[in-house]
Design a protein around this nucleic acid. Structure first.
Lengths: 291, 291
DNA sequence: CAAATAGTGTCTCTAAGACAATATCAC
DNA sequence: GTGATATTGTCTTAGAGACACTATTTG
C-alpha cells in the first residue's frame, strides 16, 4: 500500500530526537529509494490467423497465434521472448503494455487484460525484475496490414496448448521455421487463475512459457463468457466466424444451433452478406452494445 | 518482459564499437538501474465478525469487515490506510503480501488473491510507487485470538458497499468510533474486474478506497462460484453459517433449500452437531476436497 | 445437381428458483 | 407448547446440449 511500517519508523524517531512532519515525510521517501526492483511489462499478444482454404467450397481454418521476438542479446540469446519493456515514469502498467505492443506490432490491440504479476526471485538473470504480464488481442486485419516489415525479428507462432494428463500441459508454438515445445505443470488454480511451473522448454526465454500458459488459461476462461471473443474479429463478422474463434479458444467443437441461441442477445444483424463463397452466403453481424 | 528494446540497444553498439556479450549484458543491467518505481503491496484483509445474538433463539448476524490502520505520519496523517509494505529482495509479491498481513494481524490468512496493480502516477505523494493489491480472508477465530493487543492502531471496520445508482457505489466503513464514507464511480468493467474512481472520500488514505472497492467486487465475483466462501469459516461449520457468508458477500438473501442443493457436492458431513442453540441443532460439515 | 455452409425447430436433461411441509431442540 | 432454525420434497422455468431438418449459394 505504499504505506509501510512507518509506525515503528516514526516511533523510534520520536523517542530520540523529535522530527518535524517534513523530516518524517522525507525520511519515508528516502527509505524506499535504496533497494528497489525494476518493473517491466510482458505482453502475450494473440490473434487468429486464417489458413488458405484447401478447397473453394470450404471456410478457412483459423489458428490461434502469439507474437514472439527473437532475442539478439544475452541472456537467452537466440531464444524467443514475449514483447515488453520497462515501466516509464508517468505511465500506468496498462499504458506501458499498450505502448509496447503498439511499438512491436504497429497496431492498436482490441483489448489488453492483466494476467498476473511475476516476481519470483531469479526469474530474470539480469537482476531483480518484477513483471506485470498482460494478454492482448489483435484482429487479423490489423496484423496483416502492420506485418509488412518482415525484416523484424518478431514473428507470429501458431499456438497449441493441451492437457496431456491431469495437471500436465503441453505448449507447442510453431512458425514456418521454428517449433518450440514446452511442458508445464499446473501447481495451483485458485480463483480461476491457474499457476504453472515449467517442466521442459526448448526455446522460450525467461519464464515466458509460464506467462503464455497463464495467458492462454485466462483467455479460455474469458472466452467461455464471450468476453474476449469479439476482440479477435473485425467490426462485421459472420456467426460461423465468431463460433470458430470461440471453438479455437475453448479447444472444443460447438453445435452451431446452440451457439446461435446463446449469443443471440450479444449481436445485431446487418443487411450485408458474405459474397463469393462456394456455398450459401452468411449474414454479417455486429457486436451489440450493452442493453 | 524484463526484456526491453535491447535490439536497438545492441544494434547501435555494434555500429560503433563492437561490444562483447558480457558488455552488452552489463549495459542492459545498468539501463534499468537509473529510473525505477518502488514496488509495494496493499492488502485488503476481510473477515466475518458475528454480533452478539439479540435473543437466545436467534442465530447471530454477521458483518463483513476489513482491516485498516491509522496513519501516524504524513502524508494522510490520521487517515485510515490498508496494511501493506514494500517488496523486499528475495520474495514474491504474494509472499510480501502474506508477510505483511501476518505481521499486522498476528494470524495466517486463509487465502490471498491478487486484485490488480495500481500504478497511476501520483497515487502516492511520497513518490513513484506501484502497488500490487491483494484481497485476503481470515476466519473470525483467528482474528479473535490474535486481536489481543488493542494498543495497536489497527482496527476492523464493518463494510457496507452498495450500488446507489447505475455505476455509482457507496462504500461505508464503520468501527465503534469512526465512520468513513466514500462514493465511487465504476469506470470500466472488462473481464469481471471492474475499475473504480473515487468521487468523494471522508478519511481513507491514498487510493485505498479504490482498492477496497475493487477487492469487494472481486470477492463478490468469486463468492458466486463458492471459491472464497469457505475461507471465512473454521474447519467445521453449519450450512446456515456457510449460507450466511455467501449471502453477506453477494449482498442478497438465498433460499436455504436451493443453497443446500447447490453446495451439496462441495461439503462432507461430519457426525457432530451444534449444541446449546435455542432451536434444532445443525449438523457440522467440512469442506470436501476436490474429486 | 453436388458439396458445402447457413439457419430453424424441437426434444431432453439439468440446474436454479420458489415454496410447502416436516423435524427437532432450548426454554 | 412456542419460537426459532434444520432439513427434505416438489413444482416450475430457463438454459444447455443433441440432433434432425430446410435453405441457399457456387461451380
Amino acid at each position: 500500500m505504499s504505506d509501510t511500517k512507518d509506525k515503528s519508523h516514526s516511533d523510534s524517531a520520536v523517542n530520540n530526537v523529535p522530527m518535524s512532519d517534513e523530516e518524517i515525510y522525507l525520511s519515508d521517501y528516502r527509505k524506499k529509494e535504496y533497494d528497489k526492483p525494476s518493473v517491466a511489462t510482458d505482453i502475450a499478444a494473440f490473434t487468429i490467423l486464417s489458413e488458405d482454404a484447401q478447397c473453394y467450397r470450404r471456410n478457412p481454418e483459423v489458428k490461434l497465434s502469439v507474437l514472439l521476438i527473437k532475442r539478439g542479446n544475452h541472456p537467452f540469446k537466440d531464444h524467443w521472448a514475449l514483447p515488453g519493456g520497462f515501466l516509464e515514469r508517468g505511465e500506468t502498467v496498462e499504458q506501458c503494455a499498450f505502448r509496447e505492443i503498439c511499438e512491436e506490432t504497429g497496431a492498436h490491440p482490441s483489448s489488453i487484460m492483466p494476467i498476473g504479476t511475476f516476481s519470483e526471485p531469479g526469474r530474470d538473470p539480469r537482476g531483480w525484475i518484477v513483471s506485470c504480464a498482460f494478454a492482448s488481442v489483435l484482429t487479423e486485419e490489423k496484423v496483416k496490414v502492420a506485418g509488412g516489415d518482415d525484416a523484424s525479428d518478431a514473428r507470429w507462432f501458431e499456438v497449441r496448448f493441451s492437457e496431456e494428463e491431469k495437471g500436465i500441459f503441453r505448449l507447442v508454438l510453431s512458425s514456418n521455421e521454428d517449433t518450440i515445445e514446452c511442458v508445464l505443470r499446473r501447481t495451483a488454480c485458485s480463483f480461476g487463475k491457474p499457476e504453472f511451473e515449467t517442466v521442459s522448454n526448448t526455446g522460450i526465454a525467461f519464464d515466458h512459457a509460464k506467462i503464455i500458459a497463464t495467458a492462454l488459461a485466462v483467455l479460455k476462461f474469458e472466452a467461455d463468457k464471450m468476453d474476449v471473443v469479439f476482440d479477435f474479429l473485425p467490426e462485421r463478422f459472420t456467426l460461423a466466424e465468431l463460433q470458430k474463434v470461440q471453438e479455437t479458444l475453448l479447444g472444443k467443437a460447438l453445435l452451431s444451433a446452440n451457439f446461435r441461441r446463446k449469443i443471440a442477445d450479444l449481436v445485431t444483424e446487418t443487411d450485408e452478406y458474405t459474397e463469393g463463397v462456394g456455398h450459401r452466403p452468411a449474414r454479417l453481424f455486429r457486436r451489440r452494445e450493452l442493453g
